[in-house]
Design a protein around this nucleic acid. Structure first.
Length: 291
DNA sequence: GTCGATGTTATCAA
DNA sequence: TTTGATAACATCGA
C-alpha cells in the first residue's frame, strides 16, 4: 500500500492537525504492533502524557517527535491508515471500517478531547517507540537509505554504482533508497525504458541518471495528486488519491503501451513478471533488458 | 469452495 | 553475498 507520496500526504495532514496535542491514552486489540517496543503495556506507560512536537516522514514511516526526546515511529505496511476526522470514526459512517481499527490514541489539547484511530485490515502495521536515539539506532529506522526527493542525481549515481542485481529489486530496497515501492518503481522504469529484470551494473550511467530523474518526477506528480488508491489507500479524512487514473503501466496488464515514438504508437503490450515475489509491470516493446 | 493476488518487510534456507 | 520462498493477515474476484 502506501509508498512515499501516500505516506508524505498523510504526514503533512497529520502535522496540520496533531502538533501540540497530548497523548492521553492508548488502546489496542493487537499488541503485536508493539513487539519491537517492549510490548503495549511498556509503551503505554512511557507514552502517555507526552506532547506531539512535530511529525515527519522517514521513508515509509511516520515519525511523531514527542516531548522528552521520545519518538513514535509508525509503519503502515500494506493496509494501515490513520483516521482523524472532526467526528472521529462515526464521521466515516461505516461499521465495517471501524471493525478494522486495532489501535487508538486518545489525545487532548486544552479542554478538547479526540482520538487518532489506526485502521489496518491485514494487521501488518508496526510501531517503534522509545527515546529518539534508541529508535534511530534500530535497523528498521536508522538503516534506511536516503530519501529520493532529498538527494541529487550525483548522489544517486554514486550509490547505485555500488549495487548489483535486478534493478527492480534495488529500487525496492529501503536501505538503498527509502520510500520507493512497487507502483513507482514500475512507473519510473517504464518512463526510463528500462526493463525491471535488467542487471543494475549493466545499465549505462546516463540511463541510470534518467531513471533517477523520472523517479523523482513520478513521485512528485503523485504527491500533487495525493497518492495512488487502487483499493485500500485513504488519507486522514478517508479520501482516495488520484494518481491511479494517471498511471502508465502499473495494474494495466494486457493493455496497449501508452508510449508514442515519433508520432507512432509503441505497439507493445503491458506485461507482468514476478520479481522477488512482487508483480512488476512493463511494456514488452519499449523497455530494454540490460544484461 | 478454492486459488491467486493485493500497495510491505522480516526471516530463514539454499 | 544473493536469491527465493514463506510468513505475518484479511479480503476480493475469478
Amino acid at each position: 500500500m502506501p509508498e512515499l507520496p501516500e505516506v508524505e500526504t498523510i504526514t503533512r495532514d497529520l502535522k496540520k492537525c496533531l502538533v501540540g496535542w497530548k497523548i492521553a491514552g492508548v488502546w489496542s486489540d493487537w499488541p503485536r504492533y508493539f513487539r519491537l517496543s517492549g510490548g503495549l503495556e511498556k509503551t503505554r506507560k512511557n507514552l502517555i502524557g507526552r506532547k506531539v512536537i512535530s511529525i515527519q516522514r522517514l521513508g515509509k514511516n511516520i515519525l511523531f517527535q514527542l516531548s522528552g526526546g521520545y519518538v513514535l515511529a509508525v509503519h503502515l505496511k500494506m493496509t494501515g491508515r490513520f483516521i482523524f476526522t472532526p467526528r472521529g470514526v462515526e464521521g466515516l459512517g461505516s461499521a465495517k471500517e471501524s471493525s478494522h481499527i486495532h489501535l487508538i490514541f486518545d489525545i487532548k489539547k486544552g479542554g478538547k478531547k479526540s482520538k487518532l484511530n489506526f485502521s489496518d485490515v491485514r494487521k501488518f502495521g508496526r510501531v517503534i517507540f522509545g527515546k529518539s536515539d534508541e529508535v534511530m539506532a534500530r535497523p528498521e529506522i536508522g538503516g534506511l537509505g536516503p530519501d529520493p526527493l532529498e538527494i541529487s542525481a550525483t548522489d544517486f549515481l554514486g550509490r547505485i554504482s555500488k549495487r548489483r542485481g535486478k534493478i527492480k529489486t534495488v529500487l525496492l530496497n529501503q536501505n538503498f533508497l527509502a520510500g520507493v515501492g512497487n507502483i513507482y518503481s514500475d512507473e519510473a522504469l517504464y518512463l526510463s525504458k528500462i526493463h525491471p529484470l535488467s542487471r543494475t551494473e549493466k545499465i549505462p550511467k546516463e540511463r541510470l541518471k534518467e531513471l533517477f530523474l523520472n523517479l523523482v518526477k513520478v513521485l512528485k506528480k503523485s504527491l500533487k495528486l495525493r497518492g495512488t488508491t487502487r483499493q485500500d489507500y485513504r488519507d486522514l479524512k478517508g479520501q482516495k488519491g488520484d494518481y491511479f487514473a494517471h498511471r502508465l503501466v502499473y495494474a494495466r496488464k494486457g493493455e496497449e503501451c501508452p508510449r508514442q515514438i515519433g508520432g507512432q504508437a509503441c505497439g507493445g503490450v503491458i506485461s507482468t513478471v514476478k520479481i522477488g515475489s512482487r508483480t512488476s509491470h512493463f511494456c514488452s516493446g519499449c523497455q530494454k533488458v540490460y544484461k
